[in-house]
Design a binder for these strands. Structure first.
Ligand SMILES: [Mn+2]
Ligand SMILES: [Mn+2]
Ligand SMILES: [Mn+2]
Ligand SMILES: [Mn+2]
Lengths: 157, 157
DNA sequence: TTAAACATGTAGCCTAAGCTAAATATTGAG
DNA sequence: CTCAATATTTAGCTTAGGCTACATGTTTAA
């Protein structure tokens, strides 16, 4: 499986590549829910000391039933532990994913703001984009962010 | 339905917003497949004069069965027409969506390249990101692209 | 003109994510 | 201590998007 038919180098350098891009995008989509869950769980823990299913439902705009099933999936995937009617904990793996998710979220958001995108819109776009950024693109965003800060932040010197 | 509980303005300007972001991201994900289909169909028509189901399967890296069902959904949503064993056509609505999808694809890709992201990676990230950009962010990307071009393209003057 | 190769469709299965309605567990006021 | 409010789970349904195996239609080369 994988690149079975190289690239179809369409002379014009046009867009006729192979399946890889699409597969990657689909995989990213599948991982999206998990990342959003653990990120939010960590946020709730940081702000309120604990995360409960109801809070997740409220903040994600889904029913509590959806959250319940979602949590069962997270447990199955080793990202979360919890006992019925108790608060939710992240596993080591869950915390790692949450940290990564938060990092992305912040970088993407700051980047969009630096580009001049209005706050609310930037929040929305970041929520979707954050799941589709390679390390290289993350690095490029960060780099831009730094130079943008350098240019405006310290007009001294 | 919608913003039922305004924003929970967490003093620190932190990330405790409400459900809207997540809902939008989910909707964008749902629309993603359709956009990718019509974009690819238009690309194939432009390059080869027609689009067939097999080609779609090959290029998207899914089985022909998945494409068959996908096409039925597209028909149901008024984006495509086709007769069994014949080539695939976009409706007016389908062409509009394809045009929009291509525009986004190009802008996002060019933007990432301008930021210094390597070609292959940029292709991949663009394939996912392109579905999560508001008009505002698109505009910001375009603007950046123009200024970047102005800075390097015409060193004269 | 017919058989093989190729393209498309159908049957039937799966998982993720969503939902409502209904059952059950926990918490908290009186 | 008990009953109501709140939280959680379960049952059972939906749609999108995948899949394999198999059936059927179309093209093409002998
Ligand atoms: Mn997100
Ligand atoms: Mn996020
Ligand atoms: Mn795409
Ligand atoms: Mn695209």
């Amino acid at each position: 499986m994988g690149v079975q038919f190289e690239c179809e180098l369409t002379e014009g350098g046009a867009l006729l590549t192979s399946d890889e891009r699409f597969k990657k995008a689909r995989a990213d989509n599948a991982a999206e829910a998990a990342a959003d869950y653990v990120e939010l769980i960590q946020d709730l823990i940081d702000e309120f000391g604990e995360a409960r299913a109801t809070d997740l439902a409220t903040h994600m705009g889904v029913s509590h039933v959806t959250v319940s099933k979602g949590l069962q999936r997270l447990v199955k995937n080793g990202l979360v532990t919890y006992r019925p009617y108790r608060s939710i904990f992240l596993t080591e793996k869950g915390r790692d994913l949450a940290r990564d998710a938060r990092e992305r979220h912040v970088v993407v958001l700051q980047f969009l703001l630096a580009l001049g995108v209005p706050n609310l819109v930037a929040e929305q776009d970041a929520e979707g984009m954050e799941h589709h950024l390679s390390p290289e693109t993350m690095a490029a965003f960060s780099k831009y962010l730094e130079s943008a800060r350098a240019a405006s932040d310290v007009p001294k010197n």
